[in-house]
């Protein structure tokens, strides 16, 4: 399985994702430049964290128009696996590949901290190594992670089990106190209806080694590899 990590001007999480996939997951991975227009040959595209184009105007708003994004959109629409982490999630929202938008954190400050996430749907390429309702620990680092959708779209997301991760307390309870940014329904990560595009504010690439305090992110990334290998061995 081959990963492509997209580098926008101002991205800064690309090396972390690359390290996690290359050194820890031992998977082939390349950087893809925002000016490129071809993503063929890749099985999963990762839009990393950072401040693409300084996050000026709105986080992700300008990156969404980078030349490579047309190819990403085509790839995603054709069922290719796309993972947007933090700024990558914001870009996917701006590109309309996932529903909703990001507002500033309700505390009005950047937040860097460990959070607990409850896995709400394990039937996805990105979460299949977890148990339903499992509580995992993944850090966040963002200033605009306050996920917003209107009530109708939220109902749809819930009905289709598109909410994959929700901020919770260590015991798995979804509480206001456990919500670090004010997101609607404590949403930390969502998937599209077709189940191939995932966006999440927490940073799985930052928790792939015990030395750095946790390895739940490794399980998440390993889910993608497992899913792909299963799909390919079935000839799917």
């Amino acid at each position: 399985m081959k990963f492509g990590v997209i580098v926008f001007p101002g991205s800064n999480g690309e090396q972390d994702v690359y390290h996690a996939l290359d050194e820890v997951l031992r998977q082939p991975v390349d950087y893809l430049w925002h000016g490129d227009t071809d993503v063929s040959g890749y099985d999963c595209l990762v839009l990393p964290g950072g401040f693409s184009y300084g996050n000026y105007l709105r986080a992700g708003a300008i990156a969404r128009f980078a030349p490579i994004m047309s190819a990403v959109i085509d790839f995603a629409r054709a069922g290719g696996l796309v993972l947007g982490i933090c700024n990558g999630f914001q870009i996917l929202l701006e590109a309309g590949l996932l529903p909703g938008a990001m507002l500033r954190n309700d505390c009005l400050q950047f937040r860097c901290q460990w959070t607990h996430l409850r896995v709400e749907n394990t039937a996805t390429p990105f979460s299949n190594r977890f148990r339903q309702g499992q509580v995992i620990r993944v850090p966040i680092a963002h200033g605009e992670g306050n996920y917003y959708v209107d009530a109708a779209t939220l109902a749809e997301l819930e009905a289709n089990r598109q909410v994959v991760f929700r901020y919770c307390d260590p015991s798995g309870k979804v509480t206001t106190a456990a919500n670090p940014n004010g997101s609607v329904a404590n949403i930390a990560g969502i998937i599209n209806r077709e189940g191939n595009i995932l966006g999440m504010m927490p940073r799985p690439e930052r928790c792939v080694e015990e030395l750095l305090g946790g390895s739940d992110g490794r399980e998440m990334l390993a889910s993608v590899v497992d899913w792909w290998q299963r799909g390919n061995s079935n000839g799917a």
Binding site: F110, V208, L212
Partner: peptide, 27 residues
Amino acid sequence: IYRQCDYMARTDTVAGPGGDAAVLRIK
């Protein structure tokens, strides 16, 4: 103060703010 700062970027931070000294691994 320090929760406003991304102290985990670059995934080297073994011990971040709040201890006697920060510790970074050298990949």
